[in-house]
Design a protein around this nucleic acid. Structure first.
Length: 666
DNA sequence: GACTAACGTTTTTTT
DNA sequence: AACGTTAGTC
């Protein structure tokens, strides 16, 4: 039905939010207070009062959030209207802005977006080129500083460390020369484009008259500046967020943006959503008692609408092995008792590597599970190679992908030849591909290398010609080309197990399929590459499709909810993470734990270990200082042997004592 | 230039 | 423990 929401289904604060359409609006929405529902109803209401869907823009941080919002709105309004609205992430919004006008900033319109691995590759080369072969500076560290500078608006040449600054400048020149931008540049350049070009700014301000920003607590200074360019008086901007759930400080997020919203947009209407529909009173009480310890928050207290509930459990474990065993057994028992689907269970952890032991325990018991946040599809080696080839087929003169696959599969063009080629391309100010085709360059090589290069360039150009002449669809050409260069056999030779071979093969077919789908929808190769670069997150649309218990990092869990939640590794050094203690960002770790607790609807269990395996060696650890901050009114503190002792088989008891023995020895 | 074996490093979270 | 890098061999 059209206008598929009714004011009756909303509480007073939510109604207020939905009805307040004009001027700046700040919605402070605590965990589980129906934030998404409120926002989608509000947008639906915009249409109802006659605002054109084309004028509506909703910005989120993740593709997952964007597609969820699109879906929810799609359920309320006509398909046509839903499609006319713009619902996207900050980064894809910026790509839109830039594809239209980046030429005004001196880039070509077919710029490419480089992913983290590309960045690291470029930076590693620069470090060697500028600092010598035994320079010990780490590429990731330099890139992280560059990212901070870009987000703060600091000029790269003004960076603190001189060597870093010169690397940063060289890096930026390199990107520019390759007509490439990194993730941060998308925002930097989009902001610049709007700020420096009045006609562009005016154009987008008339198009996007109503702007909504989700998860506003995660915006950083740069995104804030972008919003200021995008939204002019009378400031029809609505931001939604919860400063207590700000967990992306490491990425430059400033919850100050939410605390000082009125500094950027005058006299906002502020609406508090404090009624929690998700968790039991016991869970919410525990969460509230923790978050109260943080300083400088917008004061608010979540009220539970579900009373009572089982107490929150805190279980001390001898080691991480037992922790995993315990959780797997608990899931089995709860599943049997409550006749619940596997999807009702989630296990939350601070760092990705904590998942390994858990996965093993679940696999042993044949419990199906889905991992969110493991290795990204687009981070897989074969997929990255494929993407590089696709980019080359679009534009052979793109240096980053060229260097990536120049010798993958190995074809007799090794490091020294590659060095010569990049050197030549720099001297003559052309692309590496042109260097490879240049007779002057080729003449200085041995016959073997020259032959290899000539074969490579000829094959690539032949394939490209087939695509450009539309002889057959690009995905077919790609497949043929891959067969021609014997990519898969080479890949398989490097695999240790048959299972790995299979996986790589699947990765390849998936790329062909995805590319095929994109082409059928009329997308260009360039568009396909853009989408893939920005959809860097972890097959997240698959969370719905996949079945099983969920294993997920605390960060990735934001916005989700589960009836039964386990949160593992409540240890000093893990949560709070060592690094946060050093850097003085313990507040953010507290918010992270808060986010974790508030994911749970019915049953919540936390665990900590006395010994944790670290790099293959057991290491003693202390329980998290956060535990003492939790109010114990609804907290049940037990230990592994109390819970498992009675039911443990002799075998497991034996294991337990072995573990204990190891601990005592160490 | 390709392949292997020893070596050293890992210290978060992600668009 | 697991990965990427490097040195040494063919």
């Amino acid at each position: 039905m059209a206008g598929g929401f009714s004011f009756d289904s909303l509480n007073k604060a939510q109604r207020d939010a939905v009805a307040s359409l004009d001027g700046p609006v700040l919605i402070l929405a605590g965990a589980g207070t129906g934030k998404t529902r409120t926002v989608t109803c509000r947008i639906s209401n915009m249409l109802e009062v006659g605002i054109a869907p084309e004028n509506i823009l909703a910005v989120t941080f993740t593709n997952k959030a964007a597609s969820e919002m699109r879906e929810r709105i799609g359920g309320m309004v006509s398909k046509k209207k839903a499609e006319a609205m713009t619902v996207c992430t900050f980064h894809s919004l910026c790509v839109r802005l830039l594809r239209g006008g980046i030429d005004k900033l001196g880039y070509k319109k077919n710029f490419s977006i480089c992913m983290q691995s590309d960045q690291v590759g470029i930076m590693k080369q620069l470090i060697v080129r500028m600092g010598g072969a035994d320079e010990k500076v780490k590429a990731e560290a330099v890139l992280s500083e560059i990212s901070k500078a870009k987000n703060k608006g600091v000029e790269l040449e003004d960076m603190q460390d001189d060597f870093y600054a010169s690397l940063a400048v060289a890096y930026q020149n390199e990107l520019r020369a390759q007509n490439a931008v990194d993730f941060d540049d998308l925002l930097v350049l989009a902001e610049k484009l709007l700020r420096e070009h009045e006609e562009v700014r005016d154009y987008f301000r008339t198009v996007y008259r109503r702007v909504t920003v989700d998860e506003f607590q995660d915006t950083n200074g740069l995104q804030m500046r972008l919003l200021q360019q995008l939204v002019g008086a009378p400031y029809h901007i609505c931001v939604v967020g919860d400063d207590d759930q700000s967990i992306y400080g490491f990425r430059g997020a400033e919850s100050a943006n939410i605390l000082e919203f009125e500094r950027f947009f005058p006299n906002p209407k502020i609406i508090l959503l404090e009624e929690n529909y998700r968790s039991t009173h016991a869970i919410l009480h525990t969460a509230n008692s923790l978050i109260r310890r943080n300083k400088g928050r917008r004061e608010k207290t979540l009220r539970s609408t579900k009373f009572g509930g089982e107490p929150v459990r805190l279980v001390g474990m001898p080691g991480d092995e037992e922790e995993a065993t315990y959780i797997a057994e608990e899931i089995l028992a709860d599943k049997a008792n409550g006749n619940r689907p596997w999807e009702d269970f989630a296990v939350l952890f601070r760092t990705n590597k904590q998942s390994r032991k858990l996965e093993e325990a679940l696999r042993e018991r044949k419990i199906p599970y889905r991992m969110v946040g493991a290795q990204s599809f687009y981070d897989r080696r074969e997929v990255k190679d494929m993407m590089a080839y696709i980019e080359l087929l679009d534009d052979p003169e793109a240096d980053v992908p060229l260097l990536r696959v120049l010798n993958a599969p190995t074809r007799g063009i090794g490091q020294s030849t590659a060095m010569l080629a990049t050197g030549f391309s720099r001297e003559t100010n052309t692309s590496v591909f042109r260097a490879l085709c240049d007779n002057e360059f080729l003449s200085q090589l041995g016959a073997k290398a020259r032959n290899a290069i000539e074969t490579f360039t000829a094959q690539l150009l032949a394939a490209k010609m087939k695509i450009d002449a539309k002889v057959s669809p690009a995905d077919h050409v790609l497949k043929e080309y891959m067969a021609e260069i014997e990519y898969l056999p080479w890949l398989e030779r490097g695999c240790k197990t048959d299972q790995e071979k299979l996986q790589r093969g699947e990765g390849l077919s998936e790329v062909y399929t995805e590319l095929g789908k994109a082409l059928v929808r009329g997308k260009t190769l360039r568009k396909f590459l853009d989408d893939s670069a920005l959809a860097s997150d972890r097959e997240d649309d698959d969370l719905e499709k996949k079945t099983g218990a969920t294993l997920i990092t605390l960060h990735a869990s934001k916005g989700l909810e589960f009836p039964i939640v386990f949160l593992v590794g409540l240890e000093e050094g893990v949560l709070p993470h060592v690094r946060s203690v050093v850097e003085g960002t313990k507040d953010e770790e507290r918010r992270l734990l808060y986010v974790g607790i508030t994911r749970a609807q019915i049953k919540f269990t936390m665990t900590y270990c006395t010994v944790r395996t670290k790099w293959g060696k057991p290491e003693a650890c202390q329980s998290s200082s956060f535990i003492l901050e939790l109010d114990d009114e609804h907290l049940l503190h037990t230990t592994y042997d109390e819970v498992m002792g009675a039911e443990a088989s002799e075998d497991e008891l034996g294991n337990f004592f072995d573990g204990l023995g190891d601990f005592l020895k160490s």
